[in-house]
Design a binder for these strands. Structure first.
Lengths: 261, 261
DNA sequence: GCCTAGGTCCCGTGT
DNA sequence: ACACGGGGCCTAGGC
């Protein structure tokens, strides 16, 4: 595609026969095109689990990376799918068109059989654009590293992504009074999971260093009901928003962010 | 659709102008049809996070339930999306076609602008089929309820989905020696999260009852490395497979299962 | 409305 | 290869 409006290996067919659909599919799969098929079908999946979906009209996407998804008329998520790197097999039998998508590791397969195709489309989209997402938890950590004072005056970085037994500590620092501070970051509101995660880190560091350790949960806000557990476990909460972090990143010279805040 | 091969409000257009695309879209959105659009576009999202995706050729699905997804040529997951119940706004400006999808709670919006449409399709799929999935964790719980002995001789049900402070206990029972048993089920291999989840329940029940409580993790297998934590926390592992559970369900009269094992 | 937990989660990253 | 944690996770079920 992308040839000034001129069709380049772009196929669009209304009500193709199963025979035609079969040959179009074989061709598109070989060329690793982006295939869109609407049709009346039945779906069976077996692998990590098993499923069956009776006859109905759906839209199927097959991408050049070997992923497939079956979309019903409602619902954000596909009803059946396979992640990239599947092997596809197409054949006709008993007046039906079969599409099979097989995967190893885990070993599983998805089989669709069609009795009617509503439309068939295939093309090779040209898409080399960069995708940027703001602000991830990782970027919040970067902001905190660049300016720990956004969390608390006098806070200083000692280390980040420090490995202790239960996992990785987002931010490991020292406060104005010289006490160790462990910070657990959450991009959105923090719940019990985050609190317990922080507690594990605090316990682990206490065990290793023997020193007094502060555990600080930094997030836009606490989920209601989490406050109790936090206090009970002797931990602290500090409000930290993605927006604030974005400002820090912008100020400290990271471009790209600027257009989005 | 579904009228013996006859087109009923089914539209398929190759290279529609932006003007035509706009009017087709307005119509389809009003009728809550399933829309498939391929075109060259730029995408901006803002809400729980923010993102920008430069120009490129993609496939967009808009469903009658108000969900939208933008698919790049690779990757199982859409690069941008909105879940069901969005409000859509379509307009043309500066030689571009804009599609906006807005959501409240959380407040967020996705905006696509196109400079070229490769194809446009809309139809109203007829799909009333039942979807059945085997074997879910819930079904494994049902099997364990019907025959607790599959986990351990003498085990008896006391309650299930019992609410304690941290959450819901899958299976709450009593062993041959009269001790309380808390079972955490996993349909696939269990890792640290499952162990910690179980530990929370055990602690909570211990606190409430003051009795000796056994914590049992039931899953097809443990992830390597999880064994240590399990032992450390004084918990037990029992192998339980979906297959075994399916057999119990089949024996105890649940149909449908039979075709999938 | 919030919270909790499951999912054929997917996916990136590290060991 | 496998384990671990994040995700704009989405979705279902309880309260």
């Amino acid at each position: 595609m992308n040839v000034g409006g001129q069709s380049l290996e772009f196929i669009l067919v209304k009500f193709p026969s199963l025979e035609l659909s079969e040959s179009l599919l074989r061709n598109s799969l070989k060329r690793r095109e982006f295939v869109t098929v609407a049709g009346n079908c039945e779906c069976r999946y077996t692998g990590r689990a098993s499923s069956h979906l009776g006859w109905g009209e759906r839209l199927i996407l097959i991408k050049g990376d070997g992923s497939i998804q079956v979309h019903r008329p409602k619902g954000y998520e596909p009803v059946n799918w396979q992640p990239p790197q599947c092997n596809f097999y197409v054949h006709r039998s008993g007046g039906l068109l079969f599409i099979e998508a097989h995967r190893r590791r885990p070993r599983e397969s998805l089989t669709l059989n069609f009795d009617r195709i509503i439309f068939y489309s295939s093309f090779k989209p040209v898409d080399n654009a960069e995708f940027n997402l703001y602000v991830s938890e990782e970027q919040m950590r970067d902001a905190l590293i660049r300016d720990p004072s956004i969390l608390e005056d006098g806070l200083e970085l000692v280390d980040f992504e420090r490995k202790v037994e239960p996992g990785f500590i987002d931010f490991y620092g020292r406060d104005a009074d010289g006490r160790l501070v462990i910070v657990e970051l959450k991009r959105s509101q923090a719940g019990k999971e985050a609190i317990l995660q922080l507690k594990r880190y605090v316990d682990a560091v206490l065990k290793i260093t023997g020193q007094n350790v502060r555990g600080v949960l930094a997030a836009p806000r606490l989920k209601s009901g989490a406050q109790g557990l936090l206090v009970e476990l002797g931990l602290e909460f500090r409000r930290l928003t993605p927006r604030k972090c974005a400002e820090v990143l912008k100020k400290s010279g990271t471009r790209k962010i600027s257009e989005f805040i």
